[in-house]
Structures are given as C-alpha cells and as structure tokens.
C-alpha cells in the first residue's frame, strides 16, 4: 500500500515537472481561459443588466466559474495529451515493464490533473480578487471553489486518459478540443441557463457541467448553499465514476494489444 502510494506520488511528480517544463501543457490551462475571461468580461460586462440575469455583484464574479471549469477541462485534455505522448514515445512501456499496479499509471496522471485544477482554482480566485470580484463565501468559499476545481479536473481527466489509452495517439486526444467547448457552452458555465434558447436550455439543464459550474459559482456570488454544492458533488462524482470506468477499460484494452 505504502509502496503503491510512493509510485503514484513519483509518477504524479514526474507529470507535474513535465507540465512545468513544457509550456504548451501549462499555458492552455491558464492563458487561454484568462484571455477568454478578459474578453468576455470586457466585452459583455453589461450582461448583468439583462432582465432575469441572476443577482450578482458583477459580471466578473459570475464568469469566474466559467473560466475555472474551462481551465479544468483543458487540464483534462492536456493530461490526456501527455499520456498519449508517453504511449507514442514508448515511455509507457517502461512503466508497464515495471512491477507496479497498472492503475497507478492512470491514478498518477489524474493526481497531476487534480493539482492542475488546484492551480487553476487559485489562479482564477486570485485574478477575481485582484480585479474586484468578491468571494461571498469568504475563505471557506474560496477553498471550496479550489477543491471543486481539483475534483472537476480529475473527473474529466478520466475521459482524457481513456481517450489517450484507447487511441494511443496525441492527435486524437487533441481532436476533442471542440467537444470541450460544446460541453461548456451548452451549460450554464458562461451564461445563465434561464437566458439560454432551446434546445441549449434543455441540454444545459441536464449537462453535468452546469451543476459543477453552479457549485463553483455559488460560493463566489452568494454564500455556501447546500443545494448547488451537493448537486455539484453529485455531478462531479458521476463524471468521475464514468471517467474512471472508461479509463480502466482503456487501460485494459491497451494492455491487451
């Protein structure tokens, strides 16, 4: 057990170093959502004047949750790309030839993706505070946002890992970028669900990303409320369970080839 934890920690540390030493892994997680947030808030800042727009202190406060979930999904894709790169380069063979549990390879990667989620959470909470947003839930609220960001990144990371393991190629994992945006924009991450048109509204009502975004948004724009938080926990757990199942299936298929 202790040895397995050591292996997971070592693999996770190696993936983290990889992320910090290869800017193309880290930059999309921070730079792209930050730019998107800047453009959105700068260009559509008066969206809060729209009748029926939720009662928030500012558009930046509302949009922070969107930037965070976007960043966590991009972390998941980056993690998948890094895993696919290991498969393409043969580094995965080095791990498979070692006397370690196979699941440690995936768990180590997901642990790194969770850390990237923490980094994203801290970054956007800091950016928000610097540019005038208020975290209504206070320090506990900010911590909850960061925990949700970590869990969301790891949960979606299962899908990235599954795709990497099943395809074994970087280009296939990169190819899911458009789907990431479809999932985000068909949710309430960047725009209130009650203002979306059909069929986007109905899709958003069932999209787990909406529940996750609302769970992250709640401690920022109001206080910590039980319903959105619990719904977010359930959505993250569902995504995580499905992602884990798919990645285990992908790993089995990869080991069988």
């Amino acid at each position: 057990m202790i040895q397995n934890a050591r292996v997971v920690a070592a693999l996770s540390m190696r993936s983290l170093r990889q992320a910090f030493r290869r800017p193309q892994f880290l930059m999309p997680i921070i730079v792209f959502p930050s730019l998107f947030l800047t453009v959105n808030v700068g260009g559509a800042g008066r969206a809060t004047d729209i009748p029926a727009f939720p009662d928030v202190a500012g558009f930046l406060d509302f949009e922070l949750a969107g930037a965070i979930v976007q960043s966590t999904m991009l972390s998941a894709v980056s993690g998948g790309i890094a895993l696919a790169l290991d498969i393409e380069s043969g580094f995965m063979d080095r791990l498979i030839a070692a006397p370690i549990p196979r699941t440690a390879i995936v768990v180590g990667r997901l642990a790194t993706t969770a850390v990237m989620g923490v980094i994203a959470g801290v970054w956007f909470v800091s950016i928000g505070l610097i540019f005038g947003a208020e975290i209504q839930g206070g320090v506990p609220g900010a911590l909850l946002v960061i925990v949700f960001a970590a869990a969301t990144a790891a949960a979606w990371g299962g899908f990235g890992a599954a795709l990497a393991l099943r395809s074994g190629t970087v280009s296939v994992v990169q190819g899911i970028f458009p789907i990431v945006f479809v999932i985000i924009f068909l949710s309430s991450a960047f725009f209130p669900a009650n203002l979306l048109l059909e069929p986007a509204k109905s899709i958003s009502d069932w999209n787990p990303m909406s529940f996750i975004a609302e769970g992250i948004r709640d401690p920022i724009v109001s206080s910590i409320s039980a319903e959105p938080v619990l719904e977010a926990v359930a959505a993250i757990a569902g995504v995580m369970a499905l992602g884990a199942l798919l990645s285990i299936w992908g790993l089995r298929k990869r080991l069988a080839t």
Binding site: L11, Q18, D93, A97
Partner: peptide
C-alpha cells in the same frame, strides 16, 4: 527497449530515481 524510451524533459538523475521508485 528499442529507441530508448526516455522522457526528454527529465534529467538523467530524475529518471534513475523514478526507475528505482518503480522497483
């Protein structure tokens, strides 16, 4: 293995330590 499967972003010493941990 063929085509030494090494992580180009790691140092030689880091790779050696990782391999030791794996074992």
């Amino acid at each position: 293995l063929q085509e030494a499967a090494l992580d180009p972003l790691m140092t030689g010493r880091e790779l050696m330590q990782l391999q030791a941990t794996l074992h």
